[in-house]
Design a protein around this nucleic acid. Structure first.
Length: 481
RNA sequence: GGCGUGUUGGUGAAGCGGCUUAACACACCGCCCUCUCAAGGCGGCAUUCACGGGUUCAAAUCCCGUACAGGCUACCA
């Protein structure tokens, strides 16, 4: 039987990294099977928490990550509808809830909130609701429903015994039924709760492998009781540990900058983000860290998902993003950073050469513009910058190097980087100086910057003869004052 | 409070009873390369696996307890 997994977010805001990771893992589990199917289902049963536009964010995020779903609200499929609120309209959950009642797995409950609160107050800390409606006869309950009394449908839990299941990552989990509470399955507004809808839908959609966060670990036994009451097959469970912001806090939608969208605007690549989050909580068998999504499909193994929560580390993401950027061939790199270069450099320079000098230096797209300011404007700088211990330079040494450099360059016509290189590398020898004593001042003289991406030769080549000489001239005058 | 889960360096982690004097990666620190800054190369960085007991010839690895963390305990998901 082909594996079917689903990603089932509720449209209550943007996608944060923990969510995305769950989607990734569900995707990988499905793709691992050549016949596997990955489904997107929208869980919008909490009408009060819906956020406008949230579903679009989900579509967009999955799309830009390359996590294509085979079935879903936007692409269709044989098991639709894929939006729970639409399924409610079909009366689907209520139908199954009533069947579950007949099977003894659920019951009508007429208790109002005050009654429950009262019991909670009395019980203090160790509260577990004891529902008096459990003992109502079905006839009586149905009569009251027919009379128009407000009701919910609650799960009926056996008072004795234990329920166990095997989780693929956490192993065997066993709980006493007596600790399980009889949660609401159908709310008084007629909508199912997550507790019920996810079981019904997972079964109806033929989900074989349930991939979700471990916050559901402790309610899974309740879900299994429902599966069992219906006589349905229980899926494989893959519960994932949380992604944390720091030692104490899970990543959260509020005051978090770890949404996928945020990371994009911070200049990270979707590929790098996917790669990074795959590594949060999962480790490959081989000693390697750089993976494309397709490569992850090959390498992924549920058995290597860890059991402890992991802290999202922006520094490592930044490094990995840099690796992705550096691994690109120059044409691809140029295409991806073109926009950033254009943003920072308006002058008529060869942008591809600029791309070449920043490629080993930028870890995120955002790093790029601040590096390039000196192209458009020649910044004012102080002569003291020529003092450099390591380079063994000072203003005098600089002047001794810059004047002959000017003479040489003004007579030099082949402005290719190679030609400039050969010409300028001769100069230190002729002057009896070290390379750094000539090239360091030269770079400073034409950029006004203490440090720049690229060296004097590379930058001179990009600036062009006219601009290079112009700046050099200005710097020499400044030194001679 | 109850129930369930987890705890290897600053971070991600490997390890699943002897091969571990605890991989690898990020960060950090050195050195090398070098016209700056990066990139790259090399090396350093946990005498110890939350703590305390126990089992065993042998434990980070198994068991128990304690501490701590986060999860569930909603007509949220």
């Amino acid at each position: 039987m082909a594996i079917r997994t689903r990603f089932a977010p509720s449209p209550t805001g943007y996608m944060h990294i923990g969510n995305l990771r769950t989607a990734l893992y569900a995707y990988l589990v499905a793709r691992k099977d050549p016949e596997g199917v990955f489904i997107l289902r929208i869980e919008d049963t909490d009408q009060g928490r819906l956020v406008e536009g949230a579903t679009d964010i989900i579509y967009d995020t999955l799309k830009s990550c390359g996590l294509h779903h085979d079935e879903g609200p936007d692409v269709g499929g044989e098991y639709g509808p894929y939006v729970q609120s639409e399924r409610v309209k079909e009366g689907l959950y209520l139908k199954y809830a009533k069947e579950l009642i007949k099977l003894g797995g659920a019951h009508y409950c007429f208790c109002d909130q005050e009654k429950i609160d009262e019991q909670r107050k009395e019980a203090g800390d160790s509260f577990k609701y004891t529902d008096p409606c459990t003992s109502l006869s079905l006839e009586e309950a149905e009569q009251r429903v027919a009379n128009g009394e407000k009701y919910v449908i609650r799960q009926t839990i056996p008072s004795e015994g234990t329920t166990s299941f095997d989780d693929e990552v956490f192993g065997r989990i066993t709980v006493d039924n007596s600790t399980l509470d009889e949660s609401v399955l159908i709310k008084s507004d007629g909508f199912p709760t997550y507790n019920f809808a996810n079981v019904i839908d997972d079964h109806l959609m033929g989900i074989t492998d349930v991939v979700r966060g471990m916050e559901y670990l402790s309610s899974t036994p309740k879900y299994n009781l429902i599966y069992e009451a219906f006589g349905w097959d229980i899926p494989r469970y893959i519960h994932c540990p949380p992604v944390m912001k720091d030692e104490h806090n899970k990543l959260s939608k509020r005051n978090g900058d770890a949404s996928f969208q945020d990371l994009m605007t911070k200049g990270y690549l979707p590929e790098a983000v996917l790669n990074y989050i795959a590594l949060l909580g999962w480790s490959p068998e081989e000693d390697r860290e750089v993976f494309t999504v397709d490569e992850l499909v090959q390498a992924f193994n549920v058995k290597h998902i860890g059991t402890n929560g992991s802290i999202f580390d922006p520094e490592k993401l930044t490094w990995l993003n840099g690796v992705w950027l550096r691994n690109m061939d120059l044409d691809t790199y140029y295409e991806t950073v073109k926009e950033k270069i254009d943003e920072a450099v308006k002058g008529n320079f060869d942008k591809k050469s600029i791309a070449a000098i920043i490629q080993p230096r930028a870890n995120t797209l955002q790093d790029i513009p601040p590096m390039l300011g000196f192209f458009d404007s020649f910044p004012a700088y102080d002569n003291s910058l020529y003092n450099n211990k390591k380079m063994k330079t000072n203003p005098e040494v600089a002047l001794e190097a810059l004047k002959p450099a000017y003479d040489l360059l003004s007579k030099h016509d082949d402005w290719s980087q190679e030609a400039l290189h050969t010409a300028l590398m001769e100069l230190p020898k002729q002057l009896g100086k070290k390379n750094g004593q000539v090239l360091f001042p030269l770079r400073l003289a034409i950029t006004g910057m203490q440090s720049t991406p690229g060296g004097a030769i590379e930058i001179a080549a990009i600036l062009g003869k006219e601009e290079t000489l112009r700046r050099l001239q200005l710097s020499i005058e400044q030194l001679e004052k």
